[in-house]
Design a protein around this nucleic acid. Structure first.
Lengths: 155, 155
DNA sequence: CCAACATAGTTTCAAATGAAACCATTATCA
DNA sequence: TGATAATGGTTTCATTTGAAACTATGTTGG
């Protein structure tokens, strides 16, 4: 931490720009905002919808509740995203044997096409975004974020 | 990156849980949500209001436009936060010489009291949150976030 | 069996948000 | 000057969001 920040701390001040929760929030909002805009423009897709598609691309047949578990979204968000994705024909539902409340969710052919277009874009965006980091730095970043996520979850 | 993620990448899949923008978003939402809850409970203060107070604690007399520059908030958010903070008597306004549109913003005595209570809480939260990191790791984290923020800003 | 409870997913309603329009004032410059 | 544009800040309106209530179905314990 810069010494000015340490000094401020002794004086009971807080430098927002050195405060980790603030920095994470600004960074995350910048990144997500940019991504949201490009998904919206190209695919008329919100981040929530994209998350549902992403997880279904990898785990076909999850139910909405299972999508909820895997995406840090709540069930209302998932429900809304799913209903929009049905309207736009990107996903379809099939019965769950033995439980008429839930339905398995799958990407449609159209959904797979969109998915196949977005994945490289997303990965490319991530690559550009981290282009300034060496491989070791990137690995270190992942480690640090793991630790922080674990700490945040238990606090 | 774990090898399963690399393999997925070759296959045109994306592992949301390894995708940096997603991880940042989840982490930031967890952290901010927790902080928001505690500020709300103890001080009936939103994150936006707290940001305004934080920056005024350090830079008394900023105008709303200057607060906007320093907080990654837009002017509507700042305007709303300021009007609530006036209502709750945490800040007050004084004329800007030579410009009748803008007003200087200051914490009131009450505002200073709240500020003096929150700052240690916030710093303590940050300390707990990063307790698992060694000093060198924390420094590295700050460096990495600086790089990412710079990259995100220019993309 | 059935009463109570739990779960999957949807809907409702109030509050939060963002974009754009807006008012007042100040700056620019022909 | 005076017209035009720019700035500081607020308000309006439509949309999004979240919490809670709700429907339907499934599970559990007496």
């Amino acid at each position: 931490m810069p010494s000015e920040a340490l000094k401020a701390r002794r004086e009971g001040l807080l430098f927002l720009e050195h405060f980790l929760p603030y920095r994470l929030s600004v960074l995350s909002n910048t990144v997500s905002g940019r991504i949201a805009k490009s998904y919206e423009e190209r695919f008329q897709l919100t981040i929530a919808e994209w998350r549902v598609m992403a997880v279904l691309g990898r785990f076909p047949g999850l139910t909405a509740a299972e999508v909820t578990e895997r995406t840090a979204m709540d069930k209302v968000q998932v429900s809304r995203a799913v209903s929009r994705l049905k309207e736009t024909q990107r996903i379809e539902q099939r019965a769950v044997e033995g439980d008429r409340r839930a339905r398995h969710l799958f990407l449609t052919d159209q959904g797979h096409e969109v998915y196949a277009e977005i994945v490289p874009l997303a990965l490319d965006y991530e690559r550009q975004f981290t282009a300034g980091l060496k491989a070791a730095e990137r690995a270190q970043l992942d480690r640090l974020l793991d630790k922080l996520a674990a700490a945040a979850a238990t606090l």
